[in-house]
Write a protein that binds this DNA or RNA. Structure first.
Length: 107
DNA sequence: GCTCTGACTATTC
DNA sequence: CGAATAGCCAGAG
């Protein structure tokens, strides 16, 4: 499958946008993609999966404020450490991001 | 250049 | 409100 090396323009763009998100703030996959002119919300997640070790992947959440599938526990730890506004919810993760306050948009 | 897959999203049941 | 379906894009084989 897509091994996503840094050679791809899309991959590189995603990494740059994520790196632009300040601590305590988050963006949805769709918004990140839209920021550099593409709507590949899914592709963004794939870049995170492969390069998640080198970027603040927890600052990128799904639409609705849900953390990435299979990483909700690790993400929550980062949010609490950075002071990201969370909201208790009846979701598989047991919580969600408060997009009303945490959602950030590049200036 | 076609096919398969995926840390997604929006819509419908 | 939860689960299923269909569209979506980009990259590797």
């Amino acid at each position: 499958m897509a091994v996503f090396e840094r050679g791809g323009d899309y991959t590189d763009a995603v990494l740059q946008v994520v790196d632009t998100i300040p601590a305590g703030r988050v963006m949805t996959y769709g918004d990140v993609a839209w920021t550099f002119g593409r709507a590949g919300a899914r592709a963004v997640g794939m870049v995170m999966r492969y390069h998640g070790s080198t970027v603040a992947w927890w600052r990128v959440v799904r639409a609705g404020g849900h953390p990435p599938t299979g990483h909700e526990a690790a993400a929550r730890a980062h949010y609490e450490a950075e002071g990201t506004p969370l909201v208790p919810a009846d979701t598989p993760a047991g919580y969600r991001i408060d997009l009303k306050r945490a959602l950030w948009s590049p200036s």
